[in-house]
Design a protein around this nucleic acid. Structure first.
Lengths: 194, 194
DNA sequence: TTCCAAAACACTAACGGTTAGTGTTATGTT
DNA sequence: AACATAACACTAACCGTTAGTGTTTTGGAA
């Protein structure tokens, strides 16, 4: 139980990163479906089993940073300024996340994701996991003992907002519009929750 | 272009049904993961390729009636009484769908679905497809040329309601609570949409 | 009735993601 | 210095799925 950063952990992180980088490069070069797991493993110079020790599935290679998204959502709730309303903080964070997806460098990756049913499906279930985390964070912020139906509902609405905005013509405006709806929903629920 | 019901179509439907019934029986008997496609095909006395000619995937064997759900959602919109509000009709239909899931005979099937990540994921993406259909139906009902952001958002909220209610302690109450939120969201959007 | 095109069905073989089983090295700790 | 552990490697296989190919059935046209 010493402090974290030993050589072992650094090597492990390096291997993981090398695999992820190699995979993304190959996927963008030749297309997601045209690259096999065995190709990625060979190019990254690791065994297939090693690759699966670091990533649970082929899709997970693409969404390597997925825990970041989850953390950002929950921290938007737990780490907001004391006087900021919940929904305001969430809208800001979703705006930032959507803007991040629309960044110039990210475009080819999202085009690849949109082109692959497997990747789209993986992203969907990722977002539902994030919604569960967010629901828990919301409930905790309200001092509730467990996640209520209203918390779960709003959490889903928020991740829906991100998904819909990503596909909209004007992502910024879409987030604003959907959040007006979510805020109304939240107030309607609030009459019973708080 | 004669009328449909020839012997051929009856036989095809019978084969399809036999495959689905056999699959569901085996899945419930031995567990979804413990039954292979080859087992199902053998037990239904068809070739594996025939099975895949009728069903696109192993998961589709379980959600055989999925188009029914989709149709019921859109028809709740298009086929409602002329004076009934949209959200009222949708709430009624979602209540019916959720009640249907909670029916005694359906319990083992849902337990199986909840136990299998693959099935859960399949159901999720099914629901998103349904949300897209519903969004189109909503837009059409409002006389809009295309699906707007608000339509898409509300459609997602509605299918979220079904998913959340299915897992809630008191499904009926959950649907009511979430629909109070959705109606508020719909009104907030309506200020700009209609 | 006879024949034809289409569709359902079958069979083999394979592909690609994923895992089990087993063994080898490197690393942090005692 | 020695041990326990975790990272890594290799082989072989499992399972869902598809391609390729051929056979039978069926509905309708000639």
């Amino acid at each position: 139980m010493t402090v974290p950063t030993g050589r072992r952990e650094r090597k492990k992180a390096a291997t993981r990163q090398k695999i992820a980088d190699t995979a993304l490069r190959l996927f963008l070069e030749r297309g997601y479906d045209a690259v096999g797991i065995r190709d990625v493993a060979a190019e990254a110079d690791v065994a297939v089993t090693t690759l699966f020790a670091h990533f649970a599935s082929k899709e997970a290679l693409v969404f390597e940073r997925d825990t970041d998204f989850e953390r950002r959502l929950t921290e938007a709730v737990t780490g907001r300024a004391p006087d900021e309303p919940l929904m305001s903080a969430l809208r800001r964070e979703v705006q930032a996340l959507v803007a991040h997806c629309a960044a110039p460098g990210a475009a080819p990756v999202w085009r690849m994701i949109d082109a692959s049913p497997a990747l789209r499906q993986y992203e969907e279930s990722m977002m539902l996991r994030h919604a569960d985390s967010l629901a828990a964070a919301l409930a905790a912020d309200l001092g509730l003992p467990g996640t209520t139906t209203a918390c779960r509902a709003v959490a889903r609405f928020v991740v829906d907002a991100r998904a819909l905005a990503r596909e909209a013509d004007d992502p910024r405006a879409a987030v604003d519009e959907i959040f007006r709806m979510i805020e109304a929903a939240w107030e309607a629920a609030g009459a019973r929750t708080s």
